[in-house]
Amino acid sequence: MDMLKKLSHSSLALPLAALALLLLFNALFVDDFFKIEVMENGNLYGRPIDILYRASSLIILALGMTFVIATGGVDISVGAVCAISAASCCVMLGGDISGIPEHPFVLAILCGIGAGVLAGIWNGTLVAKFKIQAMVATLILLTAGRGIAQLLTDGQIITVYYKPFSYIGGNIPGIPLPTALLIALCMVSLVIWLDRKTSLGLMIQSVGINQTASKYAGINVTLVLFCVYIFSGFCAGTAGLIEGSFIRAADANNCGLNMEMDAILAVTLGGTLMIGGKYYIGGTIIGAITIQTLTTTMYAVGVSSDRLPAVKAVVILLIIVIQSEKFKQMYRNYRLKQGSSAAKEAEHA
């Protein structure tokens, strides 16, 4: 019941409507869009599954981004951090053709996530401790991140032949759902648990609305900010592993390219405002799925991938304008006018 109430909340209604519209378009114009097959090895296969599992790394990134944006900040380094994480994991595993990893798999995964957390600590220190504007502070890793990843990989694309590495972006044998989707589900549950069962959510919102007031209310603002950026780094590290595993390689130039923008979009589509304060986890998830649905739709109708950003921009522009306070007010005024003229007409009659 509680969930239902939250779904019908006005800020969720819009992203849901956008997603529904996209899906309707697909149902009408793309053959077999909703067809899901069960393959011989038991894996599920079809465009809806594609959307969900390709969206999973974006969902994870956007979760971290939601908290960051709720504090009134932004983390534009996440795409580059993805590249660092994928690079460190692949370097640890090594590109040996026989498929024997240089270091244990668990260690490599920890290394990838650890790289993300380290990046988060760096960002957090700059923003929370040295009070540098979030955009500027994270800009440093945005520009340096790919360079670091290049250094790690020696400027080469390291292909990993170790089989289990491909399970992260594919399926673990015997489990029909893509692993990336399961990881995303775990992260979502974790975040919802944190949001509901701890006072962290309240603290984040409070910091986002007014830092000074929060301080006087006894909230450790520095610590909250610090944690938020570390969590974003952790999310980026996890997403990086998934992105790397999709192609079973570390491509420092292209891994997670422009994903920071998609993550910010997902958050704003979900109804969270860039000025901070109230946030909507559900909205973020739907936002991320909407963006991926849009991408998959474009591929399905044959729009080439270099023109995709233009189409994306138009759709997003529409959604954002509709969501804006000013537009809502204009709409209300219009309704009022209509109402009053209708009333007048009724009078005349």
Binding site: I247, D251, T295, S305
Partner: peptide, 15 residues
């Protein structure tokens, strides 16, 4: 369709 010379795009477009 273009895959931008990258593995990821090649994979997505082929999919």
């Amino acid at each position: 369709q273009t895959g931008d010379f990258t593995r990821q795009k090649g994979q997505e477009v082929m999919e």
